[in-house]
Amino acid sequence: MTYLSKASLPRFAIAACLLFGSAVAWAANDTPVGTWQQVDDETGKVKSIIQITSNNDELQAKVLQVLISEDGPHPVCKKCDGDKKDQPIEGMTIMWGVHADGDVWDGGKILDPKSGTVYKVKLSMADHGQKLDVRGYVGFSLIGRSQTWIRQQ
């Protein structure tokens, strides 16, 4: 049996902290929870900053900041229905009802504020948690559009 000497204890403690810290950092990147740069699938430019949170194992996303808009610096959801109609897009919840299903998250909805259309949504992690594939679709997942969001550091 090997014992740690008093001299090696600090080195062991530091190594253990580094190992645990890197495991925590990796675990934090294995879910969509976090802040993301929404990359437009048509232009390839970062369009907005989105924050995904988890509440009782249900993911939802809120627009923190709109970076590019055809309607000026603080756009509203002109084509939305219901309580989102003519409301500011910044601060708006655009995704809700999403639950983990193995390596994907689905079962929820996502709103495209530009068109006012609500789609079913499926999320999957890519590039060791640094990218998020967001698939919005109507009916079958094959018919829809995808964006890749980039985790904001």
Rank of each mutant, 00 (worst) to 15 (best):
58 E>N: 09
115 S>L: 03
65 Q>I: 03
128 H>S: 14
68 I>V: 15
74 H>Q: 11
133 D>T: 15
91 G>E: 13
91 G>S: 10
92 M>L: 04
111 L>N: 07
59 L>P: 01
134 V>D: 00
100 A>C: 02
129 G>H: 12
72 G>L: 12
77 C>M: 07
66 V>S: 01
87 Q>R: 13
133 D>N: 15
60 Q>K: 13
71 D>L: 13
110 I>M: 11
88 P>T: 13
136 G>R: 13
67 L>D: 02
113 P>F: 05
112 D>Q: 07
71 D>I: 01
58 E>L: 14
116 G>L: 02
84 K>M: 11
76 V>H: 11
54 S>N: 12
57 D>K: 14
117 T>A: 10
83 D>Q: 08
125 M>T: 13
122 K>N: 13
125 M>A: 13
58 E>Q: 09
120 K>A: 04
95 M>Q: 07
128 H>A: 13
114 K>S: 10
98 V>P: 01
120 K>P: 00
108 G>P: 01
70 E>Y: 02
61 A>N: 08
102 G>T: 01
109 K>M: 10
93 T>V: 15
122 K>I: 02
91 G>C: 12
130 Q>S: 12
120 K>S: 09
122 K>Q: 15
96 W>V: 13
124 S>G: 07
136 G>H: 05
77 C>G: 11
97 G>D: 00
103 D>K: 11
74 H>L: 12
116 G>T: 09
119 Y>W: 09
117 T>E: 09
134 V>T: 03
125 M>L: 15
71 D>T: 09
57 D>T: 10
97 G>I: 08
106 D>N: 15
56 N>A: 14
108 G>I: 04
112 D>V: 07
136 G>L: 12
58 E>F: 03
63 V>G: 04
71 D>S: 14
113 P>N: 08
135 R>N: 06
85 K>M: 06
104 V>Y: 06
102 G>D: 00
96 W>A: 15
124 S>I: 05
71 D>R: 06
131 K>M: 09
81 D>T: 14
136 G>I: 10
92 M>S: 03
111 L>P: 03
62 K>P: 01
119 Y>T: 11
75 P>N: 08
59 L>F: 10
100 A>S: 12
54 S>C: 09
121 V>Q: 03
73 P>S: 14
